[in-house]
């Protein structure tokens, strides 16, 4: 892995706070599933670089899909053409290379589509098997790069919680239907924790191997802070940045819940361990 100084070649803003960034200037060799730590030249705040999956790497150019959720991602989503970003990578593990004739089912949610898109794009030419995909989001705005996915996979099911695009429901609903019919050799999932947990369970029930790309709060992204711990069966932890982000779904304790606090975190009442015991009733929550 390397530390690159890359220029923003192109930025496409999408509704819903998403942006597709094309960066270039120096070559990077990476495989689908790997990520980069990205930072602008913005002094000490935000301090840490932020992890983003590679949505495509081609020659001297790489593509990122960024959703603005906080200060760091907001700044990244708002970069201008010509801006310079420090990009550290590629980091972490990659998806297993698809074997000849292997039939893959990709299950993506929101920005989780990024690494799956990369996989679909490079897997396609060598495929011979099959490449189906399910892409879920809250609303139609939460399906960024849907057209790119439709072009890269042969059979894509779009599904939204409000039914504003594709079917109405959750990615796991669509997955249940698909797994009932043809046999898939592998499920590859990336998205919100709850979605990956559901995918892991459905795949396990059908006896289909399942790979996931994990998200965790990261400080360093390269194995030195031990911040990105994800609980494993047996009581230990794996480190999302270096043991992952791509791991076999069986290596994760899914019931441990949202280790990824992200935008999907719901307002909590007192039931959580760390909630202040004597806190007054929350005002205006739910």
């Amino acid at each position: 892995m390397r530390i690159l100084s890359l220029h923003v070649l192109h930025r496409k803003a999408l509704p819903g706070g998403y942006a597709v960034l094309r960066l270039g200037g120096e070559p990077l060799e990476a495989e689908p599933g790997q990520f980069v730590m990205v930072r602008g030249d913005w002094g000490f705040s935000p301090l840490l670089p932020r992890p983003f999956s590679l949505a495509l790497v081609e020659g001297n150019e790489l593509t990122l899909l960024v959703k603005a959720v906080g200060e760091g991602s907001r700044r990244l989503a708002a970069v201008q053409r010509g801006d310079t970003l420090t990009v550290h990578g590629p980091l972490g593990t990659a998806f297993r290379k698809p074997e000849r004739g292997e039939r893959l089912l990709l299950v993506g949610g929101g920005v989780g589509i990024a690494p799956l898109l990369f996989l679909a794009r490079v897997a396609k030419p060598s495929r011979g098997g099959g490449l189906a995909a399910i892409y879920g989001g809250r609303t139609r705005r939460d399906l960024p790069m849907a057209a790119e996915l439709a072009a890269a996979a042969e059979n894509v099911t779009f599904i939204t919680e409000d039914g504003s695009a594709g079917e109405k429901g959750l990615a796991s609903d669509a997955m249940q239907a698909l797994l009932a019919r043809p046999r898939f050799d592998r499920v590859v999932a990336c998205g919100p924790w709850s979605m990956m947990a559901a995918a892991a369970k459905l795949a396990a029930d059908k006896g289909v191997p399942c790979e996931v790309s994990l998200e965790a709060m990261m400080a360093c992204g390269y194995g030195i802070c031990l911040g990105c711990a994800v609980p494993t069966p047996g009581g230990g932890y794996l480190y999302a940045c270096s043991d992952g982000p791509v791991v076999d779904a069986g290596r994760v304790v899914w019931e441990a819940g949202d280790v990824e606090p992200v935008a999907s975190a719901k307002p909590m009442r007192e039931k959580r361990r760390a909630a202040p015991r004597k806190a007054r009733k929350p005002e205006g929550t739910s």
Binding site: S45, G227, C228, A229, G235, Y237
Partner: peptide, 16 residues
């Protein structure tokens, strides 16, 4: 030692 349950890190102004 296995360490603490996540999240283990978070960013704060000019620090973590």
């Amino acid at each position: 030692r296995a360490g603490n349950p996540p999240p283990r890190v978070c960013e704060t102004p000019a620090g973590m």
